[in-house]
Amino acid sequence: MKEIALKIGQPTALTAIVNTPKQLDPDKPAVLILNSGIMHHVGSCRLSVKIARQLAKSNILSLRFDFSGIGDSENRSGTQSFHETSIAEITEAMDYLEKKRGIKKFIVFGLCSGADASYDIALVDQRVIAMVQIDPYCYRTWKWYIRHYGPKLLSLETWLHSLSVRLKKQDKPLGFSESVDINNLETASYVREFPERNEIASGLKALVNRNICMYSIITGGQSEIINHNSQFKESFSDVDFGNLLTVEYYPKMDHIITNPEYQRIVIDSICTWINRVISNN
């Protein structure tokens, strides 16, 4: 395994780290590891580094990089949205690996906003053959409401708490707590907003038509949206995923995966899944 720090793309270079295995096979897809929110390319709890190094043991090349303005990549001027710049910058990363290493197929991986960017690039770039998403777009179903509100509706404590919260809310002004000076707040360049479900369902159908393999890991950190194992597929019941989609739901895992055992599970699962996709490709 060899790790090299790189600067790629124009006009302002993006900082990237390419992890090249001992035996590089350019016919094998490479894995692109994307930023999660404002976290730099190390990834949540060093997840990106650990995945890259484990993939290298299976002779899979990976590249982790920072989008412009995040981590070690400088800002790029312009008025484009994160949605637009992220697609352009992932494309630059793929172009680089295609030109320099001859790699023509890619698997994209991301958590949260990285999951969204994975979906966005998979939609528009034919070189993407698979994507791994942690906490991707998902939508509530009637079963979510039953599971969420059902137990609470039967609880007297919940009713009393709800009443107490409502009374308190009337006195509390909206906004940040007094300890937070909003003049010093630097908001993330990407504020996560879920598109309309039908838009995502339509996009997923397009990915299915291109035989894109999808691996979705759902954490308990999205419990306000998803609260049971079958919900992801049910929320897209109009999409016939066939055997292209694998979903795993971990209700006790938090969004940034702080528990060491879950970190191991996620790293192993992702690397195993990617190896399987590559061997079937």
Partner: peptide
């Protein structure tokens, strides 16, 4: 913050 915003000192 809950939306990934950070405070810069």
């Amino acid at each position: 913050d809950d939306f990934g915003g950070i405070l810069l000192p």
